[in-house]
Amino acid sequence: MRIFVCIKQVPDSAQIRVHPVTNTIMRQGVPTIINPYDLFGLEEALRLRDRFGGEVTVLSMGPPMASESLRKALGYGADRGLLLTDRFFAGSDTLATSYALSRLIEKAAEEQGMPHIVFCGKQTIDGDTAQVGPGIAQRLGLSQLTYVSAIDAVDPEQGTITVRRRADHGVQVLSSRLPAMITMLEGSNQIRRGTQNDVLRAARSDITQWNAAGVGIEDLSLCGLRGSPTVVKRVFAPSVRSEKATIVSSESGVSATASALIEAILERQPALETDLLEQASGY
């Protein structure tokens, strides 16, 4: 089976800080990671390769340093990594990103053949849009299967696939055709530890880099800032409420603080006590 996995190198959001005075993002020294949602797709891809044989190719668009994330993916067991990097891609929104990535996928498909499945992250932790996967599916005419919790059956020969998809209020069981773009639901699997061989191979491997011209992009107005219909007009810190929280405390210990807190809550929201009593009558 030929499987492509799109990944994004993102700042580890847990470690981003906002400067307390200037309210600007302090990006220096924030470590980068593979977008955690992408790893569920990568693991699913590796499992399919275990069953059917074939190759797993990881692809990314980003600055040259994003090759570190691709190399990390090789360390988990992926077979090869492709990076699309060019200054023309700077400032891409989701529409421009899905354009660039779909050209990279087409370029890789020219050399390896069309993939049976393209996995994308459900969303990223820095953008949180969930729009790039569907964008790629539309542009390449792939069957779009998002929020997949399990792949029940897949037949690369027949080009068929059956998945479970998380919907509101239930699970859809869908049958569809390959090639498909799939985003996996978080928790559907757990990324493996790469073998020692994988880790050694990753360290030695070259990550193939392409620029815009290399993947056949001639019209640069479709890329980066120019190719992005959305415009960020303003970035700002949220306004602080005019009053900060009233701090409840007591010198006499935790119990006194708890009682003072309950008094303060009920004083401000007297109706709550009646509501609570009604609920408590069920005891």
């Binding site: 989701t94 569907p134 919907a167």
Partner: peptide, 18 residues
């Protein structure tokens, strides 16, 4: 789940901002 699945596709076919 439905809205996000659909919006990303429609914005791409229309080539507009979302």
């Amino acid at each position: 789940v439905l809205g996000r699945d659909l919006a990303g596709s429609v914005a791409t076919t229309l080539k507009t901002g979302l």
